[in-house]
Design a binder for these strands. Structure first.
Length: 759
DNA sequence: TTAGGGTTAG
């Protein structure tokens, strides 16, 4: 028998196991509990097939606690949680006493609801087992029940080092720095684990300096301690510091493990330094490291961030069965970052188990690529069809999408969910709220949120400043810039873009000039804003001089501003100059051709108009489709030029025709530029007057209550013809109509638009 | 057989 036991412990593959099994059968030993337990232990070690393990288990006619425990351990190793639980219930029914390690596994598995086991552990007297006791303590500490953990800890007659360490981590988990420090100082003895817990604790509080102090004072460091400090840097936007520490680690002869590589790789990708990444890859290859899927996922992400989508996809495919939710999520966001939404969606639809990050990645992916309506649609699906709880990131993305298309009602619905589910907002949540309100034209609420915020960051200020800019509140934008400086928040280049745009929209030439002068190192974008400001104010020659004096090469935005100003002030020669530069810089952008052809059209130079159109056709440049959204009862309705797909189409067009008749009767003449801008000569008659914003407005007129203002958002600039037509509609229908285009609001009321400077 | 470190979304 002793020979057999010796053989059994050395078994290293399934066929050896089957041989032993056969030998036991031959000697009629296979149903003895001792041997069943031993076979099951080997099954666990070798990951044997569940059917085989089950057949061994059932060969025992009267399985005892040991057999049950071995089978339970087998299932837990295989991740078959349901089987684990049902087996445990069987044991309870049979009054069998599980092995302590079984409890440890079960308590960990139960996680947050693990306190169910506490009573049973007490009843069976397992509480004196310090391994089990510590697991319970740790479970309480990990899952936010620090009070229970403390109670247990204080009642303990003999605390082990592990108990102290669990308690310290528990304090950090609940953000209780004072208690963590006190426990650490009171400890009778400390090990690397205690010190490392302090390092991670401070890292969680984003206090990297103190974390580093503990790290430096640590009497002995393990790889884990190094990793803790490395990750602290890597996760708090200190990638450079992380890589410095990584190199010191190598110099001191510490062998990196998987976690080390993950931190190094992710630091590399956030710095965006390709050559650094290459040298890191070389090191990994040179050391012949076997990479686990954490490292592979980090590598996947790095390649994706460097734009190597094929390599990233290669790693993803290679991972095969080792893929987890994170791997899928990384690949999805790799695609959304690159604007490849359909590929991202394909993965999203095919992934086996989506978590909140998967939904967030896809919702944010749509939102960031201009597919706001899809983003909102997907959020509804998440709420209506799944049990997954949205978090701050979800809400921030959806609110941003709502802002883009002015979906105020839908935003209210989203905010109700936030209240219902008690989702806590941090800075980014509030920032998105400010964005949404100001994009919906509700500056008052945007400002209210801003004032109630505890801590603000530069994005908070920038968002509200841009909101003021879009709503024509130039003075408020400048005031906010001053507040910002008072509160010690350094304005960045986005801040100045916002303030300059605000000046431009409010016609504040002098103030804008002063602000521009105060910018330490103006970027090309600031020059573009300045050209826009000068141009709109009619100082086109100054704008041209400014462009010529620029220390850097002007980009498309600079000439775009000049072109727009030339159109407003009918300066054909300057417009031609700007447009030609633009066509050089962006030969594929249809907007530039259309702007130029409009300038020629307004000057009556039809032959030039024809030539521009011809050039566009030859270059294969397609005109972009203008879209308009209107929100009705929390649903988003979108329209494109000449759209007939809406179920209300018939009524919409009937109303439009009726309105046009009325307009003609009161002497309204359409401006042909509208037709020339978007359609070929032969289609002109048919398409005239069917721009998306008009369709959206007619739809809103049909469905909305009399007296309520109509809100429409257009993704491009609204054209002159529609501008005039909407003015007239607001008068004829006695309705207030608010149209927001790319960057500002047009408020039409009683035949007057309150943003005259725009045209 | 317990305690410390890991990849993703804004």
């Amino acid at each position: 028998m002793y020979d057999l036991v010796a053989i059994a412990t050395k078994i290293s593959n399934i066929s050896q196991l089957r041989q032993l099994h056969a030998h036991l059968v031959l000697n009629s030993l296979q149903s003895q509990n001792y041997w069943v337990s031993l076979l099951l232990t080997i099954c666990t070690r070798l990951h044997a097939h569940p059917a085989y393990a089950a057949s061994i288990f059932t060969s025992s006619p009267y399985p005892n606690a040991s057999v049950y425990s071995c089978m339970l351990k087998y299932y837990s190793r295989m991740g078959a949680h349901d089987e684990v639980v049902s087996l445990f219930r069987c044991m309870q029914c049979l009054d069998l006493r599980p092995h302590p390690s079984v409890y440890i596994y079960l308590i960990k598995l139960a996680g947050k609801s693990g306190n169910l086991f506490h009573a049973s552990v007490l009843k069976l007297g397992h509480i004196d087992d310090h391994f089990i006791r510590n697991t319970i303590l740790d479970m309480y500490a990990k899952y936010g029940q620090v009070d229970l953990a403390r109670k247990l800890f204080e009642q303990m007659p003999n605390r082990t080092l592990a108990d102290w360490n669990s308690m310290i981590s528990g304090c950090w988990n609940s953000g209780n720095e004072a208690d963590a420090v006190m426990l650490f100082s009171m400890m009778p003895d400390r090990n690397t684990i205690s010190w490392t817990a302090m390092v991670t604790g401070y890292a969680k509080m984003r206090d990297l300096e103190t974390a580093r102090r503990y790290f430096d004072e640590m009497p002995e460091k393990s790889v884990v301690s190094w990793n803790a400090m490395l990750s602290a840097y890597a996760q708090n936007e200190c990638a450079e510091e992380a890589l410095k520490l990584f190199h010191r680690m190598l110099k001191e002869g510490i062998t990196p493990d998987d976690t080390t590589w993950v931190a190094a790789i992710s630091s590399c990708s956030s710095i965006g330094n390709l050559s650094l990444a290459d040298s890191l890859l070389a090191k990994i290859n040179q050391k012949h490291v076997i990479l686990n899927n954490f490292v592979k996922t980090a590598l996947l992400d790095m390649h994706a961030k460097f734009g190597n989508l094929e390599i990233a996809r290669g790693i993803f495919d290679e991972l095969g069965g080792q893929r987890n939710a994170v791997t899928w999520n990384v690949m999805i966001s790799a695609y959304t970052r690159a604007g490849k939404l359909s590929l991202a969606r394909e993965l999203f639809d095919n992934m086996p188990k989506r978590d909140v990050v998967s939904w967030n990645s896809m919702i944010a992916g749509y939102a960031q690529n201009g597919e706001s309506a899809m983003s909102i649609h997907l959020f509804r699906e998440m709420i209506d069809c799944t049990d997954i709880q949205p978090d701050e990131v979800t809400i921030a993305s959806v609110l941003s999408a709502c802002g883009h298309i002015g979906a105020l009602k839908f935003s209210c619905w989203v905010l109700n969910i936030v209240q219902e589910k008690n989702i806590k907002f941090g800075i980014s949540g509030f920032n998105s709220l400010i964005f949404m309100y100001s994009k919906c034209g509700n500056v008052v609420d945007a400002h209210r949120i801003f004032q109630n915020m505890g801590t603000k960051d530069v994005v908070t200020f920038n968002t509200l400043i841009s909101g003021f800019a879009a709503n024509g509140h130039g003075k408020d934008a400048i005031k906010l810039l001053l507040t910002m400086e008072e509160e010690g928040i350094e304005p960045d280049h986005v801040t100045y873009i916002g303030v300059l745009t605000a000046c431009s929209h409010a016609g504040m030439l002098k103030e804008g000039k002063n602000i521009f002068k105060s910018i330490k190192a103006p970027t090309v974008d600031h020059y573009a804003c300045m050209v826009d400001l000068l141009g709109r104010a009619g100082e086109l020659d100054d704008a041209k001089i400014l462009i010529e004096s620029m220390p850097m090469k002007p980009h498309a935005g600079v000439y775009g501003s000049l072109l727009n100003a030339s159109r407003i002030h009918k300066r054909v020669e300057l417009g031609e100059l700007a447009a030609n530069k633009l066509l050089e810089l962006e030969p594929q952008n249809p907007g530039n051709y259309i702007l130029l052809s409009n300038i020629y059209a307004s000057a009556g130079r039809w032959e030039d108009v024809r030539q521009v159109r011809e050039k566009m056709r030859k270059g294969g440049v397609k005109k972009s489709v203008g879209m308009s959204w209107v929100e009705y009862k929390g649903q988003i309705h979108n329209f494109t030029v000449g759209d007939r797909s809406h179920e209300w189409s018939k009524d919409i067009y009937r109303l439009l025709a009726e309105l046009e008749r009325k307009m003609k009767r009161v002497g309204f003449v359409t401006d042909k530029s509208c037709a020339l801008r978007d359609v070929e000569e032969e289609e002109k008659e048919e398409m005239l007057g069917t721009h998306s914003e008009k369709l959206a407005i007619c739809f809103a007129l049909l469905v909305s209550e009399v007296g309520t203002p109509i809100r429409v958002v257009k993704n491009l600039r609204i054209c002159m013809d529609c501008h005039t037509a909407i003015k007239m509609i607001s008068k004829l229908e006695e309705r207030e109509i608010i149209v927001r285009d790319n960057n500002r609001f047009h408020c039409f009321s009683e035949g007057i638009c309150s943003c005259h400077d725009y045209w």
